[in-house]
C-alpha cells in the first residue's frame, strides 16, 4: 500500500471484492496514479460506473462516485458533464456494459464527443454472473454459456469506436500498468470523448476455463500478444494474426459537445440564432 492509495482510496472499504489476481485492482491503481499526475482535486472528479465486477470500482475511490445501472454509465455521466462542465468525468465499464447492453450509448458518445474519459475493462467475460461469454469473447473459447466453445464472432472495440467517430481511442493492458496511467492522463487531457480499452484478465471465470493456470499466465499472454503502435507498422501482417495493437490509436480534433452547446446558448441569448 503506497501513499497514493491512502490518498485516493476509501481505505475503510478495502480489501476490495475482486478475486485473487484480478486485473481490476491493477487498473484502479493505474487510474489513481493518473489522477495524481493530472493534479485534479478529489472534489472535482466524478467517477461513474456500470454493473458487474468493474462497476464496483466507484465504491473504492474517494471522488464523487455514481454506481449506475447495467450499461448506462455513459448516459448518467453525460448528464453530469452537461450540467456541471467543471467536473472531470470518468466512466468505468466492463465489456458487458460497453459492448453489449450499453453498446448504443458507446457509439453515440463517440459521435457526440462530450468531454468524458471512458475506460473499458475488457476481460472478455461476464465475471460477476459466473463466466458467460460476452461480445468480446474470442471465438472457440469456453464459457458457462458456451460449454462447447463460442460460435459468436467478437467485437473489436477500438475499431468500433473509431468507426463511430471517436476523437481519442487508445488501448493497453493490465500488464502494461505504467502505460495505462499515461493513457488515462492523455485521455483526460484530450478535449472531447476519450475511450481507453484495457485488455484485462479474469483468472477465475475466463482463465480457468481457457487453459490459463494462474493470473500471471494471463498477464504473460497480454505481454506476448500486445504490439506497441510504434512497432505495429513494421510487423508483417501474418505475424499480427491473433495479436493486438496497444497505444494511442486515434487522436484528432473535433468540436466538443458542451462547448458547442454553450456557444449555441450564447448565440440564442444574443438573439443571433437562425431559426427555421
Amino acid at each position: 500500500m503506497g501513499a497514493i492509495h491512502e490518498k485516493y482510496l476509501r481505505m475503510d472499504k478495502l480489501p476490495h471484492i475482486w478475486c485473487p489476481g484480478c486485473g481490476n485492482g491493477i487498473i484502479m491503481s493505474s487510474f489513481i496514479r493518473a489522477i495524481e499526475k493530472l493534479g485534479y482535486e478529489k472534489d472535482e472528479v466524478a467517477a461513474v460506473s456500470g454493473i458487474g465486477c468493474s462497476g464496483r470500482i466507484t465504491g473504492y475511490m474517494d471522488f464523487n462516485t455514481l454506481h449506475t445501472t447495467h450499461g448506462r454509465a455513459l448516459v448518467f455521466a453525460t448528464g453530469i458533464k452537461m450540467a456541471n462542465p467543471g467536473l472531470k468525468v470518468f466512466v468505468f465499464m466492463g465489456d458487458g456494459d460497453a459492448a453489449a447492453i450499453g453498446g448504443n450509448h458507446l457509439i453515440h458518445s463517440c459521435r457526440r464527443n462530450i468531454d468524458i474519459t471512458a475506460i473499458i475493462f475488457n476481460n472478455h467475460i461476464y465475471g460477476m454472473t459466473g463466466g458467460q461469454f460476452s461480445p468480446t469473447t474470442f471465438r472457440n473459447k469456453y464459457a458457462t454459456t458456451a460449454p462447447y466453445g463460442t460460435t459468436d464472432p467478437d467485437f473489436d472495440l477500438v475499431n468500433l469506436c473509431i468507426g463511430a467517430g471517436a476523437s481519442y481511442v487508445a488501448r493497453s493492458t493490465s500488464y502494461h500498468a505504467k502505460m495505462l496511467t499515461d493513457l488515462f492522463v492523455a485521455g483526460a487531457l484530450h478535449k472531447g470523448f476519450a475511450v481507453i480499452e484495457v485488455i484485462t484478465h479474469c483468472p477465475v471465470n475466463f482463465g480457468r476455463r481457457n487453459e490459463f493456470d494462474t493470473p500471471a499466465d494471463m498477464l504473460r499472454w497480454q505481454k506476448d500478444h500486445a504490439v506497441r503502435t510504434a512497432k505495429a507498422d513494421m510487423v508483417p501482417m501474418e505475424e499480427m494474426e491473433g495479436k493486438f495493437v496497444i497505444g494511442e490509436l486515434i487522436k484528432k480534433e473535433k468540436p466538443e459537445y458542451v462547448e458547442e452547446y454553450d456557444r449555441l446558448i450564447e448565440t440564442v441569448r444574443k438573439g443571433d440564432a437562425h431559426r427555421e
Binding site: G2, H5, L14, H16, W18, C22, G23, I26, L219
Partner: peptide, 11 residues
C-alpha cells in the same frame, strides 16, 4: 511488483 499487485499489498 508494486505496479502489478491487484491488492496494494507491496511497498
Amino acid at each position: 511488483c508494486e505496479l502489478l499487485c491487484p491488492d496494494y499489498c507491496i511497498r
